[in-house]
Nucleic acid binder design. Structure first.
Lengths: 197, 197
DNA sequence: TGTAAATCTGACAGTCTGTCAGTAATCTTT
DNA sequence: AAAGATTACTGACAGACTGTCAGATTTACA
């Protein structure tokens, strides 16, 4: 699933025909892939720089060529996650026309992304509480989503589709509920099967 | 607010007329109090055994007389919190008569407890992701609450007071939302003022 | 006050982190 | 395809924190 070595690999992002990326870019990606592999089966608290780099064949200090520490690496994972989640939420946020099917599309897309990336999402959330900067990024990510949902709710209230509740508190409450449930359900394997656990 | 020293203090739990507790009990309580003080203003990630014990005048190794590590100490704080929260939730869980005022009483009590203990609640939640055992305790605490709420919902459904939704998923969803919002709002000082932040 | 039990301490070994000067690999230019 | 310049890597180090232990100190109680 991921490169066995950090040395001289192409990195599985390089598609045929692309220019071969700089070595540094390849190695960076290989480290990120190794982290994804690790976090797929083990919690963030068990991740150490040493073990991570031993998954390739590079030395521990090489890690610091690419990331300032493990939390900085998690920031990179969060950025990817944010892009993916924001992309899948676009239909409802910006789509034109009847909002009901758009919302359904967005919600099922959101669940699908969290299903696929659950352990990573969870790892980022876990890591956030151990580092001030990552925590700020995480809160900022949540806030971005809150803002978008609140704006959308207000828009639909103006159209008479949603009762006149305070939009932002409503958005925050629903988002926190969703986030908690998605991380709970898909954050660790074996994955949850509904909330009955 | 807390003892300045761990040595020879009574510990502020000892009320007049009680038998003076054993030294070990007093010291243990003093350490817990120091931890509460610390966590009131600083996040769990900054807490170290050395700094904690330096708040009294005891040496670092003395800590291990009372707790196996910092997460074990957090377990103790969680137990106190659990007792307090469960006590305040009793009116709705077990009260007789019209459930509406009972629920209001419980909810406002819950908010009050979280207002008073917010930073501690948050510290426990943060610490939980860094330690397997504490994480299990935390999930167990949530589950206990989920079970109680689900049972109460079913009971009110039987009385025709709540629509026939799946009780447990409903309970879990509402509890996760509440927990996330309460920790968000009251978990750090200065305290939040509604969700508008 | 004396003494057994309890509590505490300095010193140690272990794990992980982050840095640095020097070495090795890679890329570029000719 | 070899030299030179740049980029990437490494072993070795110092620092922070943890958890333990034998021995010293304090406490409790007769």
């Amino acid at each position: 699933m991921s490169a066995k070595t950090f040395r001289g690999n192409l990195g599985h992002r390089a598609a045929a025909g692309e220019v071969r990326p700089r070595k540094s870019e390849r190695t960076r990606q290989a480290i990120l892939d190794a982290a994804l592999d690790f976090l797929w089966t083990r919690p963030f608290r068990d991740l150490t720089v040493g073990e991570l780099m031993a998954m390739g064949d590079a030395s521990r200090p090489a890690f610091y060529q690419y990331f300032s520490d493990l939390h900085n690496l998690m920031e990179a994972l969060l950025n990817d996650l944010r892009d993916e989640i924001m992309a899948v939420a676009q239909p409802w946020f910006e789509g034109e026309g009847d909002p009901v099917p758009l919302l359904q599309e967005t919600m099922s897309g959101l669940v699908r992304v969290c299903y696929r990336r659950g352990p990573i999402l969870r790892a980022v959330a876990d890591a956030a509480s151990a580092d001030a900067r990552l925590e700020k990024d995480w809160r900022n990510f949540l806030k971005t989503f809150d803002d978008a949902v609140a704006a959308k709710i207000e828009q639909e209230q103006a159209a008479g589709l949603v009762p006149p509740l305070a939009a932002r508190p409503l958005a925050v409450a629903l988002n926190r509920m969703d986030a908690a449930l998605l991380i709970d359900q898909f954050g660790q394997r074996p994955r949850g099967n509904c909330v009955s656990r």
